[in-house]
Nucleic acid binder design. Structure first.
Lengths: 177, 177
DNA sequence: GGGATATTATTAACATGTTAAGTGAATTCC
DNA sequence: GGAATTCACTTAACATGTTAATAATATCCC
């Protein structure tokens, strides 16, 4: 009775609540952040198992992937490229270096900066994962439609641009101190 | 021809590490997961400071928001509604209960289930945050365009649907064990 | 030249994401 | 009606997100 059977998978269904109080501000589950979150989760759900089979997390994969597009790169630039915050990147680089998937050296001109590059071993791993990853991406593209997908990405980019310079009050102005 | 940006073309013939290695599979920074991630971050960047000023994280806010849309709700349903995994929800509910922002009781008919509802104090907090939150949402809508925003959300929903039943190999089939 | 300041990267501390395992309660099924 | 199974939730363990604080170097600027 009620409840179908949702294995251990919390995400991926609708929840029709009981007495239904009145709708608040917005239907909430239809808010923009939620829409983006769910869409991304739907996409990543496709990739995660494959990555996991190769011992990689999503972020580790992002970093290695980013490193294949350059010869070498400074940490801060890599953070931008892989869209990770510094602290996360620091931790992951430490692990990837320990696994010898990347190499790190100090910049000659500026001892503060570290320069990172992917190792042969890392490259090999990427090459092992890439085919599956590409196949999944192709399947997604086929399902959703290449044209529609391109349009979606364009709109997402436009959204980013729209918000890039946006500021507002209540954003942390706490008197002084 | 051999150079067209085809599938597993990670290494250009060999891993000859010359200067400026060339672009791999996809421009990477333009992959769908990255696009979604950046778009969502651009949006959340607007909300986080305000939430923070009220002592709430994004997820705590999601939960309280979800709770305002129902009279009371079971934990599993709430997980679906707020799109959180069980373990995350468990932790957050523990904290929110300690802060007396929510109330929890055990279902009478099924001792396994817990029923959660927002408290008066929680409702008050929501009401304090909502105006700013609404203002930010309105600003985003104005900047991006209401029509365009609706279209984007439709496309995101469609993407979710497209991928909902998608399966593929390499997804964790490790013999048996 | 040298103190004040800025920059780069890391560490710290806490909250969440993610998967697996555990606990207690309900259901199934013989 | 009781063992086996399933279910709802929680804990555990590890990785990352997020903000603040540090440490080490570079740069400014008088």
């Amino acid at each position: 009775m009620a409840r179908k059977k949702s294995s251990n998978d919390i995400r991926g269904g609708q929840a029709e609540a009981g007495s239904t109080r009145r709708a608040p501000m917005r239907e909430f589950s239809r808010s923009l952040p939620m829409s983006l979150l769910r869409a991304r989760e739907a996409v990543m759900r496709q990739f995660r198992p494959s990555l996991r089979n190769h011992g990689l997390t999503e972020q580790q994969w992002r970093i290695l992937r980013a490193l294949t597009s350059v010869d070498e790169i400074e940490v801060t630039e890599l953070a931008h490229l892989a869209f990770l915050l510094g602290p996360s990147l620091s931790r992951i680089l430490r692990d990837l270096e320990a696994r010898q998937l990347i190499e790190r050296k100090t910049a000659a001109t500026d001892l503060r900066r570290a320069v990172v590059s992917i190792s042969a071993k890392g490259l090999k791993l990427i090459e092992a994962v890439a085919p599956t990853s590409e196949a999944i991406y192709a399947a997604i593209t086929k399902r959703y439609g290449a044209r529609r997908l391109a349009e979606l990405q364009e709109m997402l980019g436009a959204l980013e641009m729209s918000l890039s310079g946006m500021v507002h009050d209540d954003a942390g102005i706490e008197a002084d101190e």
